[in-house]
Nucleic acid binder design. Structure first.
Lengths: 342, 342
DNA sequence: TGATGCAATGTTAACGTTAACATTGATTTC
DNA sequence: GAAATCAATGTTAACGTTAACATTGCATCA
């Protein structure tokens, strides 16, 4: 390994002069500077980052904590990581993915995801004890943390309103059988759209949703395929709102298999916008969670905090955007709100 | 930050005794050891990895070089990264993803992918000049590198043979319009299956493939959907071999839309096995590239080399495995090899 | 009883870099 | 012409850890 010491000896100067040529060249006589630069180049000197880190107490590494229960090989993780990677590499930072906190690792800051608010406290204390800033995908009531989260309720509400505005009144939601916040929130958003349009059955209290059908299946297109076949054997809604695009793929297939068309016979709406919505024909109109952008924003927020450029802490709740596909059409059959027709 | 120096002062011992308690506790008198351990715990001492790295010249970090032209948000990259991550985290190693080599970064070794053999030489020299081992996804004729690659020819050949053994003689391949090695290799494998079964049209030289139809489309399910519709409007082969599972998804949709069934009317075979084959109904029988496992094996090979446990260098060409779906059935129509029927 | 061995602990130096302070010699200032 | 200034460079110490060698004091042995 070529060190500053070796360069200094070759050039007949002291180590610190070499260091100055590298860091503050203006403070070195041009003659000396040119000599040292020539030797640096000749011996292909590269600084030892480790030694620099020891002095500066900076590593140029961000630790990204993704708990082990989140598979790295799903679109969520990959978009998140891609966003972080792009934000950091432009600033000459790199990152390490941590799957647990068993191990010491020196870094300049943490990006954290996949935690419920109560799980977050120990991680927060961990970062605080190391005096490192932290940015969180999620929202939490702890001070000194940059937070960004997605509003699943609004996303589900808006795309459901979209279906309602296209004239659909008999909309079935295919939701996931998982006890996660996002599952609950998307169903709430679905209901809220009916409430906003005052389409909850007359004479029923706001909040009485027994007249709106929600079918459950697991989050796979195969499960959605069978659930949809069963549904279509029973009756034919004018639209299906799918809690995820993975589900929507199975729904579209089941509609085809039934000899029906999308969107002519049944409209389909999805949620996630992480690539699966592009796989069907027609492409699915969906709600996009900007995971890539969130990863990028979190990384940028963290870098701003590290550099001291930013004073106030972010606390953002993003409104997800509707991505236009071709899977939503005008309602061509049906009898209005199913509850009203009963 | 709590350092060994602070612990030493509190315990009334020298720094090196603290270091010994941490590294070689047997060499410390039990009495002293217990005292120091108590204070270490009380002040929540954690070692400074940077300082350790400076002394040991080891970082416990592997640099994973994925050139910028490979999007991190595709299944290939994500499975690759997941495999590496799992192999490394069990050994208390972490990794950094490098998107270019503009920047110095201290690491214990390199994992490299996505390079053609000529692009690989400078990267190889880069690693060699830093005296760090390297493991490559690909194959190359350079010494001192662990290599693992997938045999696309054999994979395509075997799944095509599978179709031939099911009685199919009129098989169309839907290939990608990209000038990449894998595209060429999969088409070669497709042809080879016919040659192996001596099904290249009678009276034609081995290698004359004008009687086997290959349709091209871009690597998206929408493009495959339209290409397949056009194909089915012309004629109905008994099976379609798709160069990628993304294409296979569009093919299945087009078959449905035509009012036909998979595999009753048309069998479908795919390639990749990175998740998309699970999205259709029926699930696609495909050839799986074990990307996750390759990432894992490369990481393990690198760790073995770093630890000096391994002498000889790996040079593996993996045979991809067929993943059973339900998309291949017996041939129920058709007239044998299309060329013969002409 | 003095030499030998050994367990326990300490001192010094090293890893490669940079910050803070020190020195040198030439130039400017009053 | 002595004092002050300044550019150029050097010396020392520091970051936190560990390796190599040194010391101490006690027990063992001939």
């Amino acid at each position: 390994m070529v060190t500053q010491k070796m360069i200094a000896e070759k050039a007949g100067v002291s180590i610190i002069t070499v260091s100055r040529v590298l860091n503050t060249p203006d403070k070195v006589k041009p003659e000396t500077r040119i000599l040292v630069e020539r030797i640096l180049k000749e011996y292909q000197y590269t600084p030892n980052q480790i030694a620099q880190s020891l002095v500066s107490n900076k590593t140029s590494i961000i630790d990204v904590y993704i708990p082990e229960y989140i598979a790295l090989d799903n679109p969520f993780a990959m978009y998140f990581i891609a966003g972080i990677s792009d934000a950091l590499s432009s600033q000459l930072y790199s990152f390490s993915i941590l799957r647990n906190l068993n191990r010491e690792h020196n870094c300049d800051g943490y990006i954290v995801t996949g935690l419920l608010s109560n799980e977050f406290v120990p991680v927060w204390e961990y970062a605080k004890s190391r005096n490192r800033p932290m940015a969180l995908f999620g929202h939490v009531a702890l001070p000194g943390v940059d937070c960004i989260d997605v509003d699943n309720v609004i996303g589900a509400c808006e795309i459901t309103e979209r279906l309602l505005e296209a004239g659909h009144r008999d909309i079935v939601m295919l939701n996931v059988t998982e006890e996660k916040d996002y599952v609950h929130d998307r169903q709430m958003g679905f209901y809220r759209a009916f409430e906003n349009k005052s389409l909850i059955g007359e004479g029923k209290a706001i909040g009485d949703r027994s007249d709106i059908e929600v079918v459950q299946c697991s989050n796979s297109s195969g499960s959605a395929f069978y659930a949809t076949k069963e549904l279509l054997n029973r009756r034919q809604p004018t639209a299906i709102f799918c809690a995820t695009d993975t589900i929507a793929i199975g729904v579209v297939q089941a509609i085809y298999e039934k000899g029906l068309s999308v969107p002519e016979d049944v409209s389909v709406a999805g949620f996630d916008g992480l690539g699966h919505h592009l796989l069907t024909q027609p492409q699915i109109t969906t709600v996009r969670q900007p995971i890539y952008e969130i990863g990028k924003m979190l990384a940028e927020a963290l870098l701003a905090r590290i550099s001291g450029k930013e004073e106030s802490f972010k606390n953002v709740l993003l409104k997800p955007q509707i991505i236009e596909g071709k899977s939503i059409g005008a309602a061509t059959h049906g009898t209005g709100v199913k509850g009203n027709a009963d």
